[in-house]
């Protein structure tokens, strides 16, 4: 088990201990929220895990790097960025997916574009955002988010 995983578990445990000490009833409510959230996310976790297995087990590294690697160039970043904007994957699960893409030969820029558009842009929640905030503000936010995702992707690709 790696240090980060241990640290995350320690933080959760200490937090829970403090919570029980301060207010038992609220702590139990937190645990209920946690269990519910875990069960709700479990099918998606298994989908992503299977998807990663198929990706790494079936698709040769050369194919992944052709479509999402350095040689895919601007179009690779743009298309994977668009994919991230349209897909509805919980942000928590985008990171293992991104790690597997990197393992499989994708470039840093493509992976960063994917994570950033996935988390920042919600095509599924866009109608709600338009209804609540108005067309102008919602479209400006999502449109500019896509632009800055591509910029961040290129800067990260240049540094890492």
């Amino acid at each position: 088990m790696n240090i980060t995983a241990i640290a995350i578990n320690l933080i959760a445990m200490i937090g829970l201990m403090i919570a029980f000490y301060r207010n038992r009833e609220k702590a139990i409510r937190s645990l209920k929220v946690a269990v519910k959230g875990f069960i709700k996310m479990l099918p998606m976790v298994l989908i992503i895990v299977l998807g990663i297995g198929l990706l790494l087990g079936l698709v040769p590294t050369s194919t992944i790097s052709q479509f999402a690697g350095e040689q895919s160039g601007f179009w690779g970043v743009l298309i994977v960025g668009l994919l991230g904007a349209v897909l509805f994957i919980p942000a928590l699960l985008s990171f293992p997916l991104a790690a597997s893409l990197l393992d499989g030969g994708a470039s840093v820029s493509v992976v960063v574009a994917f994570i950033t558009t996935l988390t920042m842009i919600g095509t599924v929640t866009l109608p709600l955002e338009i209804r609540e905030l108005g067309k102008r503000m919602a479209l400006l936010r999502n449109g500019m988010s896509f632009l800055i995702a591509i910029i961040i992707a290129y800067i990260m690709g240049a540094i890492l």
Partner: peptide, 16 residues
Amino acid sequence: LILPAIMVILGLFAVW
């Protein structure tokens, strides 16, 4: 190894 702990942290924040 990490998801249950992450969910506990989320739960604590949601309630507190």
